[in-house]
Design a protein around this nucleic acid. Structure first.
Lengths: 343, 343
DNA sequence: CTTTAGCACTCTCCTTGCTAGAGTGCTAAT
DNA sequence: ATTAGCACTCTAGCAAGGAGAGTGCTAAAG
């Protein structure tokens, strides 16, 4: 697993070259374009050894070398120098964010930024509702026994859910409930699970038995039971991948894209690899879902007022400019955290 | 422009065959597979004439024939027999719809259904807000001088908008405003433009001059001015197109997909071709945007409680099963209208 | 006059064989 | 330890040729 400096330099050069040209890299290119002061023969020799230890491979005998997953892994862990995003790019990003005052649009913009800046697929996971404390709940009748429930969290996020009751409820009762909930919420910060219990108790107290049957089921179970809250993933830039030579064959792309359309599975996949305040890089075969094993996934959490909220990421072929992509993901996660905290 | 019965039958056969195989159709295939009781030579003769009048064309001299846009147009207008969707499919669609109780999800499901059933791109335009009468407005404080405005229409749709005020407003004032608006709304059905004026007057009456400055700008202009409401298009199944042989070259696909990502232009394009209670078929070059001129667009309005609301459509290569696609679009538009009316 | 069999013709697609070039691994000399 | 030199391997590209698909035209048959 240990490589001497020279071999490392050659590996880095091969990866750098392959990332930019997408074509197998020959020993002579390295000798010419990278100032290693070595002849192509020496480089050839070293490349041969790198191949023997699985950092590189050859598509065929008379072709140049291509990095393996292991090669990329070593590069990311040991060789890559972290770059900072140029100030002008940072400014551009800020400008685009400034246009949006709305939560949903901010999410959308984020996924767009991620995909455009990296030419890969941009991913944004909505803030995880469960972790939040609640600030306010509002029940509004919408007609035909339907109620619009607004849940406003401490972090300023607004969730809405429209529910159908199987029976009637008076507007007075609804107001009473709203007020009851809000006064409870003001006493101390309460999360969804708490609210679920408190509300259930209160409904039992104030409602008749039949009424209980109607409301405890449709209002409480459908709405305040956290299991209801589904994963939402903002996806952008699927099309970018058809420009990548690794997806020249459309079946491959089809295979990947069909997979990532499954929102909940994708969200779970992303969540699984998150590490607090760390950018995660999952390369090729390291990905659990076999559909993603030709790709690398870069993820990072974002925060709202210091608390973990959701995650962003990018997905693209293993041949990607890791250094740049990581710096983009990190800057965007930081910026998004700031912006959502101000909301 | 007139064709005799036999020539029509041959044109129909060629189109039918081409739709299913995606390959140029030869005279002998027609002679063999379609019971026209004609030799391939005769069919060849007729095809030649069809080509001379631009209903068909040949990719090269020794290839079969392919329908032109004009050919498809004639087919759709004169030859195609309308089919009804099979009952089992209808039942499937209903079942999928039944799962969704929410507006946004219903929109999403609709675009999914359209794309899956036709293997093309499914399009759904959100109901047009402007045409609706209002039933109820609710102003909820969300903290940090932010107000969540809910607008509920007669047709039961809920629109929300979060606005930032540049100054403070008391919860009492907010409640007063909500009540004021709602009492006005109960008097008679009022649309957005009316509300805008009434509200402006009332704010002028109850607020001090500085307060007016703050609210009339941020509350009224940002929220009740209908220009705010942007087009939202639910798009689904972009990936389907890569399976179509006409998009084998990825640049073509890229070209089209980049275009349709422009939500407002796409919405405008769709709206432009709507005709009340009619399914519109726009074939190839008939499309205004040049990016869509290899495609056909099928659109139809849906209604909420009998009133025109939004539109659905599908977009795919000109080689599509028009009869089937139209029946799908029509059934889904009908079903969607019913479902949204019940909401 | 309409239909059709027959045939020459055209064009694509596939195969084959060949060459040039890229890039390698190995060996022997430095 | 490094490198020049060379034989070797594999691909990409091109040309030539043949098979096959499908046509348009002509002339004969209905």
């Amino acid at each position: 697993m240990e490589l001497d400096k020279r071999r490392e330099a050659i590996l880095a050069a091969v990866i750098h070259r392959y990332i930019t040209t997408a074509e197998p890299v020959s020993s002579s290119t390295i000798a010419e374009k990278y100032n290693l002061n070595l002849s192509s023969a020496t480089i050839r020799h070293e490349m041969n050894l790198l191949e023997k230890s699985d950092y590189l491979w050859q598509p065929h005998t008379s072709a140049g070398r291509v990095p393996t997953d292991k090669g990329y892994r070593f590069y990311v862990d040991n060789l890559m120098k972290k770059t900072d995003l140029e100030e002008s790019k940072k400014e551009q990003i800020m400008q685009i964010y400034r246009k949006s005052k709305e939560f949903e649009q901010t999410m959308k913009i984020t996924s767009q930024l991620l995909s455009r800046l990296t030419n890969n697929i941009g991913l944004v996971l909505e803030p995880d509702f469960i972790n939040n404390s609640l600030r306010r709940v509002q029940l509004t009748p919408v007609g035909n026994n339907r109620i619009l429930v607004l849940i406003i969290t401490d972090t300023g996020l607004v969730y809405q859910k429209l529910i159908n009751l199987s029976g009637e409820i008076s507007e007075d009762n609804l107001n009473y409930l709203s007020n009851f909930i809000n006064s409870k919420l003001q006493e101390k910060n309460i999360d969804l699970a708490n609210l679920y219990n408190i509300l259930k108790e209160e409904l039992k107290r104030i409602l008749s038995l039949q009424e209980q049957f109607v409301f405890i089921h449709s209002l409480i179970e459908d709405c305040f039971n956290y299991r209801y809250f589904k994963d939402k993933v903002y996806l952008n830039g699927r099309i970018n991948l058809i420009r990548q030579p690794e997806f020249r064959e459309t079946e491959k792309l089809d295979y990947l894209l069909s997979f990532i359309e499954k929102e909940n599975i994708l969200a779970e996949t992303i969540r699984r690899c998150l590490v607090w305040e760390n950018t995660q890089v999952i390369i090729g075969q390291e990905n659990r879902p076999k559909e993603m094993q030709d790709c690398s996934l870069i993820t990072r959490e974002y925060k709202i007022k210091g608390k973990p909220a959701g995650a962003i990421g990018i997905l693209g072929p293993t041949r990607m400019d890791y250094s740049r992509v990581i710096s983009i993901v990190e800057y965007i996660s930081e910026t998004l955290s700031e912006i959502l905290s101000e909301f």
